[in-house]
């Protein structure tokens, strides 16, 4: 079943008299349980594509269908609610809430979903255990390493039980050890819990672990490779 579908997706920007086609007629389907890397050089349009899939940006034309819902038709407020329920985000700069502990950061998303206190506590602990931070529950982001913070971000992205997780350059600020560790965790969650991951990256270490690599150039899909890993 396709979790993400785009049909003839276009996003253009006006730069003076020039029209920039950041995403130029992309048709893409991502199935449930995929571990996909969208790759391409800087300015290729991979981040714009990720923003469109994540409902953070609106297409100039074309369709984005997430879990059967055409999200390009949603209002801003409905889109925020949709993101909360269906999409998990992992950002390059972690973007945790600095004044909350690791557990509170994970719980925060569930709080927005109005989950009970007990459910929030149980799931946040379970997820932090899963990413290897069971002993760092009460630490604030400032007290954690970059790799640990990104693992908290992964736990937070999974907290709302999303349809898929979008990760924009999640390893860009991490050293090799932390990167390997993070990718191990994500791969395990993908295999064991069948969680769909979509990365925008140009990190070869991520590309090497991806099961499908979609290469974007000049706003178009240049190649789409499924790898048997």
């Amino acid at each position: 079943m396709a979790v993400i579908e785009t049909h003839n997706l276009e996003r253009t920007y006006q730069d003076g008299n020039q029209v920039i086609r950041a995403v130029d007629g992309i048709d893409l389907q991502i199935q449930e349980g995929e571990f996909t890397a969208i790759v391409g050089p800087s300015g290729s349009g991979k981040t714009t594509l990720l923003n469109l899939i994540g409902g953070l940006d609106k297409p100039t034309s074309g369709e984005v269908i997430i879990a059967g819902t055409p999200i390009h038709e949603l209002s801003d407020n409905a889109m925020i609610d949709f993101r909360l329920k269906h999409i998990g985000f992992v950002f390059q700069a972690y973007n945790l809430i600095p004044v909350l502990t690791a557990a509170e950061n994970v719980e925060f998303i569930m709080l927005l979903q109005k989950k009970s206190k007990e459910e929030r506590r149980q799931r946040s602990h379970q997820l932090l255990e899963a990413v290897g931070l069971g002993d760092r529950l009460t630490k604030r982001p400032g007290e954690l390493s970059g790799g640990q913070q990104q693992r908290v971000a992964v736990a937070r992205a999974l907290a709302s039980r999303p349809s898929f997780v979008l990760a924009d350059e999640p390893t860009a600020n991490l050293d090799s050890h932390s990167t390997a560790n993070l990718l191990d965790i994500m791969a395990r969650l993908n295999e064991e819990e069948h969680m769909t991951f979509v990365f925008a990256t140009h990190d070869q270490r991520v590309i090497d672990r991806a099961k499908r690599v979609v290469t974007v150039e000049d706003g178009k899909i240049k190649s789409d490779e499924s790898l048997d890993r």
Binding site: R83, F89, A93, N95
Partner: peptide
Amino acid sequence: RKELGMLMAVGMSKRR
């Protein structure tokens, strides 16, 4: 800015 943008990205409503 980044943090508030992130909050809205992950689903925190404008009202909140």
